[in-house]
Design a binder for these strands. Structure first.
Lengths: 118, 118
DNA sequence: CTCTATATATAGCCGAGCGATATATTGAAT
DNA sequence: ATTCAATATATCGCTCGGCTATATATAGAG
């Protein structure tokens, strides 16, 4: 139950999610995928066809930058935030919080909660 | 400042917003537009090109039903939730809250807040 | 040797949000 | 009368992002 968030729900916040996990430390695509999945308690499962184009887009927007590393046997493309990316993250996070407050209020205004059983 | 929410941010929740305002009472398109704008403190300004196709979609999905009324001089198309729409609203609201909690936690985990000045 | 997990990439489809445009009416200001 | 803004709905076509499917390659377990 409550399997996975609908694609459209994530549409507006995937960038923010990815930027957020990169704020902590450098990551490569596959590790971002795993960390988001764990952090969301399994509710976010980014398909590769979503993740990699997204990373390419963030990079072409200069929000992140990449470096190949195959010194560990595994060939991985490591990403880190640029200065621009950090600013964007901060702005997006702030905007998201306002949006969430707005939605909560909207839902709260119009959706009555079921009474506690008893 | 903080002009308007980005389109993509709303992408996944416009349905929920509209269903929410209809939960309160029957509305017509234009009034939904106005109420969302007021309720969001001006941050949500649904363009007509977004609103009406959205309403048509919700109706073709049987989540809302409509009735024309021109007895007031103004020709308006009034919408109300169907039983299916009420269920959907409840499910979407619940899902949204989970999603918000998840996002808040994600942002909280990785984004450090600026220290209070001083 | 096979199978799974790891790791990245892209083509092409689909659907939502939006700008532009169109139409029609009301009421206020000129 | 006429002009203009607000009200009220509708649709075309564009754009862009998420996803499925597909492809490639390696590591490690069995």
């Amino acid at each position: 139950m409550t399997e996975k968030f609908e694609s459209d729900l994530l549409r507006g916040s995937l960038d923010l999610m990815v930027l957020s996990v990169l704020a902590d430390e450098s990551q490569y695509g596959y590790s971002i995928q795993k960390r988001l999945n764990v952090a969301s308690l399994g509710k976010v499962k980014l398909p590769a066809g979503t993740l990699y184009p997204l990373l390419h887009r963030l990079e072409s927007d200069k929000l992140i930058k990449s470096k190949w590393d195959d010194s560990t046997g595994r060939k991985r493309k490591w990403y880190e935030l640029t200065a621009k990316g950090k600013k964007r993250l901060s702005a997006q996070a702030s905007q998201w919080q306002q949006y969430a407050a707005c939605m909560t209020s909207l839902i709260g205004n119009f959706v009555s909660k079921p009474e506690p059983s008893g």
